[in-house]
């Protein structure tokens, strides 16, 4: 009984392996180390956002504003750097702004009692608008060429791209928080039954604000990586990123109604999306068809999940 449960849970993992095998056969250059590292680097940005969203979705919430937080956080960090602030301080400042934006989402949802979908739909527009106001609609360039800032997006550690290292470190820390801490248990409990959690003495509002804060911070971290790689902060950066991130969470088997799921699944989900993008590119599939395939895979995954649950 328990084994079949694990087998089911690992469904997305087998899916990833299957897709990898198929793509390796169809395109010989796919399974080269360089390309794998390339995929992992491409995936890291979506994965970081999706990690945060996993927490939010586990509580039964949703955050549509991740892409806008990414853009505003990145723009403010870039702006701070161009005005001469030390890159490391600028980055920390950016992360704090991300946390603040996320906390604001959480406050509207808990204290204002607004549905997460509506609350973050509104702040998605607000944060994007603020980004355009701040950048005047133009990219911010001429960023610091300091080692630390360049390292974040373009560096390598022992041959592994730095964003990939960041992604795995974030994964380990977040996995630990979700699995081993009272905060993580609270996240699952709230998604499972919010009223029961409240009556059991859990600080429901604080935990909820916490997950949105975490998501804000991770979104800006993804934004800073993106900025470092492109060497500029784009006002339209991160547009529609929430869709890929939600797709990664769902592909990984986390339930949109909350209470059930795991962050390892999200990592796999993000990898599936990344592998598909990369493989289809290598095979010269037009980007129009790529969208069709991606959507199809998401649909298939969810339908298979339904079948198992039934």
């Amino acid at each position: 009984m328990k084994n079949t449960g694990l087998f089911q849970k690992l469904g997305p993992f087998f899916g990833l392996i299957l897709i990898t095998i198929v793509l390796s056969i169809l395109s010989p250059s796919f399974f080269e180390l360089n390309n794998i590292l390339n995929i992992l680097r491409q995936v890291s940005i979506n994965a970081l956002i999706a990690f945060g969203l996993t927490f939010v979705i586990l509580t039964g919430g949703i955050d549509l504003s991740v892409g806008s937080m990414l853009a505003l956080g990145a723009a403010l960090t870039a702006g701070a750097m161009t005005s001469g602030i030390d890159p490391i301080i600028a980055i920390l400042l950016g992360l704090m702004i991300g946390a603040a934006m996320g906390a604001f989402n959480g406050l509207i949802i808990t204290k204002g009692k607004v549905a997460p979908f509506i609350a973050t739909l509104a702040t998605m527009t607000i944060y994007r608008g603020l980004t355009l106001v701040y950048t005047d609609g133009r990219p911010i360039t001429g960023l610091s060429d300091s080692f630390s800032f360049q390292m974040i997006g373009k560096g390598y550690v022992l041959g592994i791209p730095f964003p990939v290292v960041t992604m795995f470190l974030a994964f380990l820390v977040l996995w630990f928080i979700l699995k081993k801490t009272t905060f993580g248990r609270g996240v699952y409990s709230i998604g499972g039954n919010e009223e029961a959690s409240h009556l059991a003495g859990l600080r429901v509002d604080r935990i909820k604000i916490g997950v949105y804060t975490l998501t804000g911070m991770l979104s800006v971290l993804a934004g800073i990586i993106l900025t470092s790689r492109l060497n500029s902060a784009q006002p339209t950066a991160g547009t529609a990123y929430e869709l890929d991130a939600i797709a990664a969470v769902v592909l990984g088997g986390t339930s949109l109604t909350g209470g059930r799921g795991w962050i390892f699944g999200t990592l796999i989900g993000a990898l599936i999306i990344g592998v598909l993008n990369n493989g289809l590119n290598l095979m010269n599939v037009s980007s129009f068809y790529q969208q069709v395939v991606k959507g199809g895979v998401i649909l298939l995954a969810v339908l298979l999940d339904r079948k198992k649950a039934a």
Binding site: Y188, S189, N193, A196, S197, G259, R260
Partner: peptide, 8 residues
């Protein structure tokens, strides 16, 4: 509704 988290 208020006492248990049924899935857990």
């Amino acid at each position: 509704g208020e006492g248990l988290i049924l899935n857990q």
